[in-house]
Amino acid sequence: MKPTPKVNRAPIKISRILMIALLSIVAVGQLFPLVWLVNFSLLKSGDLFVSHILKWPDEPQWQNYVTAWVDGKIPQYLLNSVIVNGVSVLATVILAVAMAYAFTRMRWKLKKTILTFVLLGMMIPIHGTLLPNYIVFGKLGISDSYAGLIIPYVAFNLPLAVFIMTGFLESVPRAIEESAVIDGCGIFRIVFQIALPLLKPAVSTVAIMTFLNTWNEFIMASTYLSNDIYRTLPFAVYNFSGQYASNYSVQFAVMNMVAIPSLVFYIIFNEQITKGAAEGALKG
């Protein structure tokens, strides 16, 4: 998104101030619940019952965060989230590039049919597969491994990824690949060493969409995984609401801790996420 020069600014000054004021008020309203959450995570649990909507923490209760970190098993869940998401994003990108290449560049009979079949997947809701996969994964024993999450995550992100990749590949000229073919390169070198770098913008869109879809995913994780040692970050919150049912400050602390990694990630990759998410959503 390149900045476009705005002309005629002077006459609309008042309306500009009004717009900023309105946006600010709504922005504050939008973020206020989160501020409230942070505020009371630093207080004693009983403080929540006072009538103030915000209260200055005279003695910030940092131990709420220590409890959240330890009893919420944050380090373990965070590591699981990183593993599951890392592998899912990587696998989605690789499989999508390979498929998109075959769908756009290669010549074969069934390609239209199979492409349509895969793209149909964009319309199928994940919830329609929860019950059967619960049984199938259980029978095959993959509900007791990272694969129990990685496989469905990849499967559900693949249709959109293939859609974005094929669209993009069609706009990339074939000249470079053709000269590589003449030079006698193998097909996998052509796909992953020559085509892949040209696909960079599409790869980043796919990676961001896949990441946003899977990082906070909760319902598949709670349905398929039978063993706590593979569970991902959202479970820190889920487990806590039972165990610390009446200790609200600690619950708020664990909620903030789960939110922090995605916020940090968002702040670092703000530009790319904005661009990638919009592109992914618009194309999907």
């Binding site: 973020l31 989160l34 946003l212 906070n216 909760f218 959202p234 995605s262 702040i267 703000n270 904005t274």
Partner: peptide, 14 residues
């Protein structure tokens, strides 16, 4: 732009 998108990056469970 960033502020209005923040609730979307935070986990639904939170």
């Amino acid at each position: 732009r960033a502020i209005f998108f923040i609730p979307c990056v935070i986990s639904i469970i939170v």
